[in-house]
Amino acid sequence: MLLHFERLGSWKWVLVGITALTTAFLLLPILFIAALSFGSSQWLIFPPPSWTLRWYREFFADPRWIEAAWTSFKIAALVTVFSVGIGLCASFALVRGRFKGREALKALFLTPMILPVVVLAVALYAFFLRLGLNGTVTGFVIAHLVVALPFSILAITNALEGFDKSIEDAAVLCGASPLEAKFRVTLPAIGHGLFSAAIFSFLTSWDEVVLAIFMASPTLQTLPVRIWTTLRQDLTPVIASASTLLVLFTILLMMLVALVRKGFKS
């Protein structure tokens, strides 16, 4: 390294300052909403006049919030299962397959990542009107699957490309049928990829709001949709506590990821 941090002298403090500002820029909104969720003011005043757990009690006392959270979880879990399953099959085709247009197909699979979500949402909404899928769990899962799959495919193809096919061949010669070899050797070996795919799929669905607004009905709402609609009706600090819980759950998941990654490495 030409630029050695220790040898930068007073420039070092400039870098520290920039890092601190960036961190603050990224973290402050979240800390702000967390602080508000514990504030006693009805009107989301900052800084809060005093502290309370009232909004959390209200959140947990209101079955609509709990139901929304449960719906979110249920949909995210279903999306995770399908996303990893379909992503795994697609990845095998993309990595192991030898057919024309393989690269094009891979690019096509990744387009939902760059397509404006609202365009996708309108298209799916119109399409689902014909099928009667709007406002159903199936509709939600399919819609979220469209945006979750690219992450899943990306994570699994990466892992599979890094896995030497000879290892699977060795398992086959050892007496495992091709399918058994995949389950006993290949899948455990690319476990980190499958795990990443699962986490990203879950999170994609868990905090997705645009598609969810289109898919939701008054009786079927995910947590982000519930936050959104409540925000438009009245500005209760319960929103802040709901948001804080949403963020907290995400942070917990990411910590789990870090822990498991460490486990895969050792």
Binding site: D164, I167, D169, A170, A171, L173, G175, V185, A189
Partner: peptide, 20 residues
């Protein structure tokens, strides 16, 4: 006879131990 029933042993050029 498919590969896995041939009862043939093989050592490969690349390292093929099961990593997990």
């Amino acid at each position: 006879t498919p590969s896995h029933l041939r009862q043939i042993g093989m050592v490969f050029q690349r390292y093929t131990l099961f990593p997990h």
